[in-house]
C-alpha cells in the first residue's frame, strides 16, 4: 500500500520557529512518499517557509486560537477536514499538545492512536509503528486495523530533521468548528523559564545526575562539569521529584529524549524509564558505585566508583588542562 496523503501536526517554539520534532516528522513523511500537509495550531504565515522547505505542500493553519488549548480545537478541525480529504496517516510528536490533539481526533474519528513510536514503515498493506519497551531492549511492532486515518504519536529524536530545499508551503485556513464545552479551557498566562547554556535536547554533551549524588547541593558536581564541558545538565526523575532540580532537566520517558554525542551519567541507576530517554546517545559514560547498576549495560565507559571522589578529581583534571 502506498500512502497518498500524510498530515504532520507541527508545533512551534515560543520564539516562533518550527519545533525540531516537527521537522523530524516531516523528514520521515517525505521518505514515505506521499503528499504532505503540515497542520498548525495558530497562524501559518510565519512558518510556511520553514515547513515548505522541509517538504510540506500546504500549511493548514487554524489562526490565533485566542488562548484555547490546541487539543479540542485542532482535533475537531481535523476531524471535519478528514471527512473530505481522507488522509492516510496523521503524525504527531509525543509532546504535550501532540498527545492532546491525537487523543481528541482519535475519539472524533473513532480510530485508535498508536503511541510512543520510534519508527514507522509501510509493509505490504500495513503501516507498522515500532515502539520500544522494557527500556528499549525489546521492540513491539504494531499495525493499524481500523478503517480511516492512521494516527501515530512519535517520540522526539526518532528521525533526523533535514531540509528538502522546498519552497514555501501554501497557507490554507483550517476552520475550527464550535467545540462547545469541550473547548472551554483558556490559557491566561504563559511562563517561560529562563535558561542558560545549551538546551538539553539540543546539546552535544549532556552531564546528568541522579540520586547517587546524595543531596541537592551536590548537584553542583554535575552543573560544574557541565559548565566545564559546555554541556547541558540533566537529571533523573528521582531528583526532579525530590525538588533538587527543575523538571526541565528531566531526561527519560516523562522528560526529554536526548541523543547527544556524549552522555555522562553520575549516580544514576539506569531505570528503564531513564534509559529510553538517553540510550540513543552516541557515547555513554557512567559513574556508579554499584557494579550491578543497569546503567553499565549501556555504558561505553563505566566507572565503578563514588561520585564524590571521581567527579571532583575529574573537574580538577579538566581545570588543570585549562
Amino acid at each position: 500500500m502506498a500512502l497518498d496523503k500524510i498530515w504532520v501536526v507541527a508545533e512551534t517554539t515560543p520564539d516562533g520557529a518550527v519545533a525540531t520534532i516537527s521537522l523530524e516528522l516531516l523528514a520521515k513523511a517525505r521518505e514515505l512518499g506521499a503528499s504532505i500537509d503540515a497542520v498548525v495550531a495558530g497562524p501559518g504565515d510565519a512558518v510556511a517557509g520553514e515547513l515548505g522547505e522541509h517538504g510540506a505542500t500546504r500549511v493548514l493553519a487554524t489562526g490565533d486560537l485566542d488562548g484555547a488549548l490546541p487539543g479540542p480545537a485542532v482535533g475537531a478541525a481535523l476531524a471535519e477536514l478528514a471527512a473530505s480529504e481522507s488522509p492516510d496517516l496523521v503524525l504527531f510528536g509525543q509532546t504535550y499538545d501532540g498527545r492532546d490533539i491525537a487523543a481528541r481526533l482519535s475519539v472524533a474519528l473513532d480510530v485508535p492512536v498508536i503511541t510512543n513510536g520510534v519508527d514507522l514503515a509501510v509493509e505490504g498493506d500495513d503501516v507498522v509503528v515500532t515502539e520500544p519497551i522494557f527500556g528499549g531492549t525489546v521492540n513491539i511492532l504494531t499495525a493499524f486495523r481500523a478503517e480511516g486515518p492512521k494516527l501515530a504519536l512519535i517520540r522526539p529524536k526518532s528521525f533526523a530533521a533535514e531540509s528538502a530545499g522546498g519552497g514555501a508551503a501554501e497557507v490554507v485556513a483550517l476552520a475550527v468548528p464550535d467545540t462547545g464545552a469541550a473547548g472551554a479551557a483558556r490559557v491566561s498566562e504563559r511562563h517561560v523559564e529562563e535558561r542558560t547554556g545549551p538546551q538539553l535536547d539540543e546539546a552535544d554533551i549532556v552531564v546528568a545526575g541522579g540520586r547517587g549524588l546524595g543531596e541537592a547541593d551536590n548537584f553542583s558536581l554535575v552543573q560544574g562539569l557541565a559548565d566545564q564541558l559546555g554541556a547541558a545538565p540533566g537529571a533523573t526523575r528521582a531528583i526532579v521529584d525530590a525538588g533538587w532540580v527543575p523538571y526541565a532537566m528531566q531526561v527519560g520517558q516523562t522528560g526529554k529524549v536526548v541523543k547527544p554525542s556524549i552522555y555522562i551519567a553520575a549516580g544514576i541507576s539506569g531505570a528503564t524509564q531513564h534509559l529510553v530517554g538517553m540510550k540513543g546517545s552516541k557515547h555513554i559514560v557512567a559513574i556508579n558505585k554499584d557494579p550491578e547498576a543497569p546503567i553499565f549495560g549501556v555504558a561505553d565507559l563505566g566507572i565503578v566508583g563514588d561520585v564524590h571522589k571521581v567527579m571532583p578529581k575529574l573537574a580538577e583534571a579538566l581545570e588543570a588542562r585549562g
Partner: peptide
C-alpha cells in the same frame, strides 16, 4: 491495532568497565 511482531532491539556493544582506585577520572 494489532501487534504484528515482537523483536529484540539491537543491543549496545558491551563497554569498558573499570573499578575506581583513585585514577579512574583520568580514563574519563
Amino acid at each position: 491495532q494489532a501487534t504484528v511482531k515482537v523483536e529484540e532491539a539491537p543491543a549496545r556493544e558491551a563497554g569498558e568497565i573499570i573499578e575506581d582506585e583513585g585514577e579512574a577520572h583520568l580514563r574519563i
